[in-house]
Amino acid sequence: MTEYKLVVVGAGGVGKSALTIQLIQNHFVDEYDPTIEDSYRKQVVIDGETCLLDILDTAGQEEYSAMRDQYMRTGEGFLCVFAINNTKSFEDIHHYREQIKRVKDSEDVPMVLVGNKCDLPSRTVDTKQAQDLARSYGIPFIETSAKTRQGVDDAFYTLVREIRKHKEKMSKDGKKKKKKSKTKCVIM
């Protein structure tokens, strides 16, 4: 069974824990209790493949930012979460993405942009803004509501699919490099 290491990042209060708990335990946590770091595991079937999701729910508070490099190193894919009623959390996505790329030393890291709290009427981040940002990053965008469960499975499952595509691409690139290195030079 394939294991996928997913990391949920975003500013404090955007609903990272609520999304994760909704996926794992099928219930909505409405009281806000700032996370330092929590880890969850769940076995699911995605596109006919049974897999184990190892999900790291991270601290959004700035005082825990020193811990970010460590979990970013171990993560295979990242859910970059903002709240649709919090423009600052949307603007912060850029910083999370840049930090992930720096730590992973790669421009090509599996990510999904997630606009959470889409059940709320007080939207300050337009869907088109988020779609445009995701398009500019070359990553999928999904709106979710941890409260109603809308888009929750889709967000995590899409990230797994992005990781699969990335692994497939990397193995193809690896095979191309191996083929090239088999060419021999004969000096007579």
Results as ranks from 00 to 15, higher is better:
2 T>E: 15
2 T>D: 15
2 T>V: 09
2 T>C: 13
3 E>A: 13
3 E>T: 10
3 E>C: 09
4 Y>I: 14
5 K>V: 03
5 K>R: 13
5 K>M: 04
5 K>Q: 07
5 K>L: 03
5 K>T: 05
6 L>M: 10
6 L>Y: 05
7 V>W: 11
8 V>M: 06
8 V>K: 03
8 V>I: 10
8 V>P: 00
9 V>R: 01
9 V>K: 01
9 V>W: 01
9 V>I: 11
9 V>M: 08
11 A>P: 08
11 A>D: 08
11 A>I: 15
11 A>R: 06
12 G>R: 05
13 G>W: 08
13 G>I: 10
14 V>E: 09
14 V>D: 08
14 V>A: 12
16 K>D: 01
16 K>M: 04
16 K>H: 04
17 S>I: 03
17 S>Q: 00
17 S>W: 03
17 S>D: 00
17 S>K: 02
18 A>P: 03
18 A>D: 06
18 A>H: 06
18 A>Y: 02
19 L>D: 13
20 T>P: 03
20 T>S: 12
21 I>W: 09
21 I>H: 15
21 I>Y: 15
22 Q>F: 06
22 Q>A: 07
23 L>A: 13
23 L>F: 13
23 L>Q: 15
23 L>H: 15
24 I>C: 07
25 Q>C: 07
25 Q>R: 07
25 Q>F: 04
25 Q>W: 03
25 Q>T: 11
25 Q>G: 15
25 Q>K: 08
26 N>T: 08
26 N>L: 06
27 H>N: 13
27 H>L: 15
28 F>V: 06
28 F>K: 04
32 Y>D: 04
32 Y>P: 05
33 D>H: 04
34 P>M: 07
34 P>W: 06
35 T>Q: 01
35 T>W: 03
35 T>P: 01
36 I>P: 02
37 E>Y: 02
37 E>I: 04
37 E>Q: 04
37 E>C: 03
37 E>L: 01
38 D>N: 05
38 D>F: 02
38 D>G: 03
38 D>H: 03
38 D>P: 02
38 D>T: 02
39 S>W: 04
39 S>D: 09
40 Y>F: 07
40 Y>I: 03
40 Y>D: 01
41 R>S: 13
41 R>N: 13
42 K>C: 08
42 K>N: 11
42 K>M: 12
42 K>S: 12
42 K>P: 11
42 K>W: 07
43 Q>A: 11
43 Q>V: 11
43 Q>T: 12
43 Q>W: 06
44 V>C: 13
44 V>T: 15
44 V>H: 11
44 V>N: 10
45 V>N: 14
45 V>G: 13
45 V>M: 14
45 V>R: 12
46 I>W: 09
46 I>D: 14
46 I>S: 14
46 I>G: 13
46 I>A: 11
47 D>L: 05
48 G>C: 05
49 E>D: 11
49 E>S: 11
50 T>D: 10
50 T>K: 13
51 C>V: 15
51 C>I: 15
51 C>N: 12
51 C>W: 15
52 L>I: 13
52 L>T: 15
52 L>P: 15
52 L>D: 15
52 L>M: 15
52 L>H: 15
53 L>P: 06
53 L>Q: 10
53 L>C: 10
53 L>R: 03
53 L>F: 12
55 I>D: 00
55 I>C: 09
55 I>K: 01
55 I>Q: 04
56 L>N: 04
57 D>W: 02
57 D>F: 00
57 D>K: 01
57 D>S: 04
57 D>I: 02
59 A>G: 12
59 A>V: 01
59 A>R: 01
59 A>C: 06
59 A>L: 00
60 G>Q: 01
60 G>N: 02
61 Q>M: 10
61 Q>K: 10
62 E>D: 11
62 E>A: 07
63 E>W: 03
64 Y>T: 02
64 Y>F: 12
